[in-house]
Write a protein that binds this DNA or RNA. Structure first.
Lengths: 208, 208
DNA sequence: CCTCCTCTTGACACTTCGCCAACAAGCGGC
DNA sequence: GCCGCTTGTTGGCGAAGTGTCAAGAGGAGG
C-alpha cells in the first residue's frame, strides 16, 4: 500500500489490444461453433469490457470473419522451393511439403476446414474459395503448368476438386487417426499423379 | 358474415405440424447461416406461434440438427443395383449413379456439404461422419470389397478421403459451374479406379 | 349442444448484441 | 511535479432473440 494509485486497467496501443482480442476470439471460435461463443465470453477471456470488442471489430460477425480469413491465409513459406525432376518426384515433394505444413498448424487448420452441417454463408464461402484458389495455383505451378494456360480456370477447378480430397485425408490422419502419414502420402501422391498424367489431358477435350 | 365463427388457427395432427415446421426450417437454414435464422423467422414462415417450435423440437439447435440429419441421410434408393463387370465398368457406373442422385437433390445436398469457416461442432460432425461412413461402405461393396475384410476400417478411411473429392467436384459442377458433368465424371472415375487398383493394395502394407 | 383432450397461443424472465456518453490512463507542456 | 488533453476503455441502456409455462381454443365424441 505504498501508493494508492493502482490503475484499474492498462491502456494499450490499438494494434496491441486489437491483436489480443483477436487471439482470444480465435481460440474460442476454434473450440465451439459460432453461435455458442458470446462476445461476453471473448471479452472475459481478454479481460476487457464487452463494448471494446464492438469498438475494434464493429460486429461479432466481423470479428469472426477476420478470424476465418487469417486462419485460411497460408503462411508465406507457402512459396517453397519446388524441385525439378520426374513427375513422381515432384508430386511426392509437393505432398510432403504440404503434410509438413499441416502437421505444424494442425489445430488451427483442422478447425478451419471443418465442414458445418448446413446453411450457406456467402462471405465465408468467398474467403474459403479464395484460399483454395491460391493453393491450387501453387500446386499447378509446382506441377509445371503455366499461369497463362488457355484453360487455366479449368485446371484450377480440377485441382480444387483434389483439394477437397486433401482436406478429407488430413482429417483422417490428424483428427480421426484412421490413417498414418505414410498412407495419406500414398493416397494423395498417387491421385495427384493420376490427375496430372491422365485426367487433365482428357478433361481438356471435354469442354462444351 | 354468414357465421361469425371463423377459427383463428387450424389444429393439425402433431406429425403434420411437426413436418410443416421442419420444412420451413430446412428452407431457411439452407438460405442463411444458423445464427442469421431466428426461431421467429421460422415461426413466421410456418404461420405459427414461436413457442410451438420449442414444443415440437425443444431447442433451436435441436431443430437445426434434425434438419442436418435428414439432409445427409441418403434416400433408400441408395442401394442401387451394382453391375458386375470390369473395374472400369463398375467405377463408371458408380460415379454415374452418384451424379444422377446429386443432380436431383442438388440444392439441399449442396447446402448440406458446404464447409463453414471455423468452429467445430461435435454433434454436426458426428452426423456428417456417420453419413460419410454409410456412403463409403456402399461404394466399397460396389467395388467388390467385403464388409468382413480385416482392414475394413482402413478401407473406409480411404474412401472417405475420396468422398471429400466427390463433394468438392460436385460444388465445381453444380455451384461454381467451372466443370461440366462429363469432366466431373472423368475426374471422379479415374481417381476411383486408381484408388481401387493402385492405392488400396499399397496402403495395406503401410499399417504401423 | 356440451365436454373434454390436447394442440396452440401469448406473455414473462433471461441472455446476448450494438451503441454511446462518460470516465480515466498516461503522455506532453508548463 | 502538476495539469490538461487525447483517446483507449468502461458500463449501462434499448432492441432482439430464446426457452418456459399456464391459459386458451379447435374440434372430435358422446
Amino acid at each position: 500500500m505504498t501508493a494508492g494509485s493502482a490503475p484499474k486497467w492498462r491502456r494499450l496501443e490499438p494494434d496491441e489490444r486489437r491483436e489480443q482480442i483477436f487471439t482470444c476470439a480465435a481460440e474460442l471460435f476454434g473450440e465451439r461453433p459460432y453461435a455458442a461463443v458470446s462476445t461476453g465470453d471473448i471479452a472475459a477471456r481478454a479481460g476487457v469490457a464487452r463494448g471494446l470488442i464492438n469498438h475494434y471489430f464493429g460486429t461479432k460477425r466481423e470479428l469472426y470473419l477476420a478470424v476465418v480469413r487469417r486462419a485460411l491465409t497460408l503462411p508465406p513459406s507457402a512459396v517453397a522451393t519446388l524441385p525439378d525432376g520426374s513427375l513422381t518426384e515432384r508430386t511426392d515433394a509437393a505432398v510432403d511439403w504440404f503434410l509438413d505444413m499441416v502437421s505444424k498448424q494442425q489445430k488451427t487448420w483442422l478447425a478451419a476446414i471443418t465442414p458445418e452441417g448446413i446453411g450457406r454463408d456467402e462471405e465465408v464461402e468467398r474467403i474459403l474459395d479464395e484460399a483454395d484458389r491460391e493453393a491450387a495455383g501453387l500446386v499447378l505451378e509446382a506441377m509445371g503448368f503455366d499461369r497463362g494456360d488457355e484453360r487455366w480456370e479449368q485446371l484450377i477447378a480440377i485441382v480444387r476438386t483434389y483439394a477437397g480430397m486433401v482436406k478429407a485425408a488430413s482429417r483422417e490422419w490428424l483428427d480421426r487417426e484412421t490413417l498414418n502419414r505414410g498412407q495419406v502420402h500414398t493416397v494423395l501422391s498417387h491421385v495427384l499423379r493420376t490427375l496430372v498424367a491422365d485426367v487433365i489431358p482428357r478433361a481438356r477435350n471435354q469442354s462444351e
